[in-house]
């Protein structure tokens, strides 16, 4: 698989504290990659550096071999769905979705917009105010708004953390379908190992600003590279499995 995004030796310090330390990895076209780690590990900072919102102190970002390091956020062509969606409450769902259309020549055509709306099952909710939407609906509106700008890479900051149960699973599937259907490279920030393992093609595990492991879910589960990965991911999954076993019996565990 060809590499669409390459990060080389990224470092970042805040108030003398190292937040990211020499991070290097590559992402292939159309891949879903999760940045996984505990709170304060530096994963959101890394996402913001890729987006162009935060400046790195050291390192390089290459997109299709061209250097993006000093390219401003707006000109990178990436887009993000923030954790809290950042939907504009003065506009209804539809106006939020088409907000960026008039600003970008490269944004989706009216036909494509309809396609996104149908794909995300938003048709019955288009005229609703943001306050009238459920968490899952808000997430889908935010996704549609971002897709309308035809981003070169889709960034998602904790996309499932505010959702629960069945809605969470449904949104997870939609994210996967979007990435596959539209061949859209997607980077997701999450602190939930189960979420990362079930949604991603690759996972970058970060701890205290350093890469603990980068690999496919199977690789991480079967060959944890160090104690942190073992403790943070494998132990958590074992506990979950044990809980399910206790509740439903061995066949579910």
């Amino acid at each position: 698989m060809s590499h669409i995004l390459k990060l080389q030796n990224i470092s970042k310090h805040f108030d003398g504290k190292t937040v990211l330390d020499n991070i290097s990895f590559e992402i292939g076209t159309g891949e879903i990659v999760s940045l996984l780690g505990p709170s304060g590990s530096g994963k959101t900072t890394l996402l913001n550096i890729i987006l162009g919102l935060t400046q790195m102190d050291q390192g390089k970002i290459l997109f299709h071999q061209s250097d993006l390091t000093h390219v401003p956020m707006r000109k990178r062509g990436f887009n993000i769905v923030f954790q809290d969606y950042a939907l504009f409450p003065n506009l209804n769902a539809y106006d939020n979705i088409v907000y960026g259309q008039r600003n970008n020549k490269e944004s989706a055509s009216p036909q494509q917009i309809q396609e996104y709306i149908e794909f995300l099952e938003l048709k019955p909710h288009l005229q609703k105010k943001i306050g009238e939407l459920s968490g899952g609906q808000k997430q889908r509106v935010a996704l549609a708004r971002t897709l309308v700008t035809n981003p070169k890479i889709l960034l998602l900051d904790e996309p499932l953390s505010a959702l629960d149960g069945v809605i969470k699973e449904s949104i997870k599937q939609r994210i996967q379908s979007i990435a596959r259907e539209f061949k859209l490279t997607t980077i997701i920030v999450t602190h939930d190992p189960e979420e990362a393992l079930t949604i991603s093609d690759k996972i970058l595990i970060i701890n205290q600003g350093k890469i603990s492991q980068f690999g496919a879910p199977q690789e991480i589960v079967h060959q944890p590279s160090n104690d942190f990965v073992d403790q943070f991911i494998i132990k958590q999954l074992h506990i979950k499995r044990q809980n399910i076993y206790n509740l439903f019996g061995e066949q579910y565990a």
Partner: peptide
């Protein structure tokens, strides 16, 4: 207000 609105607006071309 949501602190990400300006960034979102910028990413949407505003």
């Amino acid at each position: 207000m949501n602190p990400s609105w300006e960034t979102t607006g910028e990413l949407l071309g505003d």
